[in-house]
Amino acid sequence: MEVLRPGLHTTVQDAGRRARALGVPGGGAADGTARRLANALVGNPGAAPGLELTLLGPALRFDAPALISLCGAPFAATLDGAPLPLWRAVAVAAGQTLDVRGAPAGVRAFLAVRGGLLGQEVFGSCATDLRSGFGGLAGRALRAGDRLIWGPALPAPAPRAVPAPGLHTPVGPHHRLRVRPTPDLTPALAASLCGPPFTVSAQADRMGARLSEAVPAPHEPARPSVPNVPGLLQLPPDGRPIVLLPDAGTHGGYPTPLVVIQADHPRLAQLRPGDRVQFEEVSLAAARHALLAQERALRQAETALRHWYARP
């Protein structure tokens, strides 16, 4: 397919890379739920590379027949002028144009193509790392005139099944993020962070989302660097918290009093400037239960769609 319009920030992403011990961010699609379901809908493995769309989508002309799905934030999309349904597989004929515009809520969506997109693989992943300049399409976002290809796959009709709406990643403008405390959390910080809502500022990208309201930050001039993971809440000296996303560095020296539980990581991908965020501390047992329930539901959907494509 040819890129007629690249969109605001469209990159090739997959499930990310396991190279954090080398100082390389994991990366990958920020909304893992959208990635897995979009791939399942077209018969791909859950980690297959596709396109991550951000705020304003691309226009793509298909030069060959394809089976696609678009999952995530509710982007307005058309195929040759006709509305394209989200969260389902859609057959595309050679010569048709997919035009994805903006979304009224949320930030990101994932476009999967049956066969999976082909890209530059680094450390076992095709995820685009913009700051390092590798992975995906030469380590950069899409540009007009780029051509993308996908791997071989047997032709298949689009399944009529669609994921249950309860599996969709919630979008804003209000977010309740469940968190666990770290040793950096003090009673004073707990009262400041797990109370009134925060506002997502305009300083938000794949590294992290800065919140507008400040809290009293502890003064630790000789603090050593510690490991970072997506979902950590950093407190820089100005007291404005930063929620880390997939492209965040692997270590840092700021206090990190809270970490968003893994089940809520897909919601981090949909934090839009102006959205309101509240943190709610939960028990370790509750965090595990939420993750197991989410994983069970996703695997059931993936298995059902896999059986569709496996039938004779």
Rank of each mutant, 00 (worst) to 15 (best):
L55H: 14
P6A: 14
L70M: 08
L305N: 07
M207S: 12
Q270V: 08
E295S: 14
P218L: 15
A34E: 08
P255G: 08
R272M: 10
G252T: 04
P227E: 10
L177N: 03
G124I: 09
H219N: 04
V107H: 00
Q96T: 11
A214G: 13
L86F: 09
G115T: 06
R296Q: 14
L111N: 08
A59K: 04
E220V: 13
T11I: 01
T10N: 02
R18M: 10
L56R: 10
P155G: 04
A109E: 05
G151D: 02
P159N: 15
A66K: 02
A29L: 07
G115Y: 05
F279A: 01
V215G: 06
L98E: 03
L189E: 01
F110W: 13
E52S: 00
G249E: 09
G252L: 07
L245A: 00
P230A: 01
L53Y: 04
V122N: 06
T303C: 10
P246C: 00
A217E: 10
C71M: 11
A286L: 11
V277R: 00
A89E: 00
Q13V: 05
A222P: 02
L142P: 00
A141D: 13
S212D: 13
G81M: 12
V259M: 02
V162F: 11
W150V: 06
R299S: 03
V243E: 01
L55W: 15
H175E: 08
L84R: 09
L22V: 12
V229F: 14
L130A: 07
W87T: 02
D99H: 14
A93F: 03
Q96F: 06
H174V: 12
V229A: 15
S125A: 14
Y254E: 03
P152L: 14
A66F: 07
A153L: 11
P266M: 03
P104H: 10
R296K: 14
R108F: 04
M1Q: 04
V260M: 08
A77L: 02
L51W: 09
A286C: 12
P181M: 07
L56H: 09
A286E: 15
G136E: 04
A89P: 03
V100F: 05
V90H: 03
A188V: 12
T10G: 00
D238L: 14
V277Y: 07
A21L: 12
E121W: 12
F134M: 04
R178A: 01
R114I: 03
P49S: 10
H265C: 08
R18S: 14
A156W: 05
P157I: 14
D205M: 10
A40E: 04
M207A: 11
P104D: 10
L98F: 07
P197W: 13
A161P: 03
E213N: 09
F279G: 01
D205I: 11
A64E: 15
A191W: 13
P157C: 13
E295W: 06
R306G: 15
V113P: 04
V12L: 15
P74D: 09
R140I: 01
R5I: 09
L98H: 08
P173G: 02
P227F: 13
G139P: 04
V215Y: 07
T199L: 11
D247H: 07
V171G: 02
H174S: 10
L22E: 15
L137Y: 02
R36G: 05
G133T: 05
E302S: 08
A263H: 00
A30E: 03
H175Q: 05
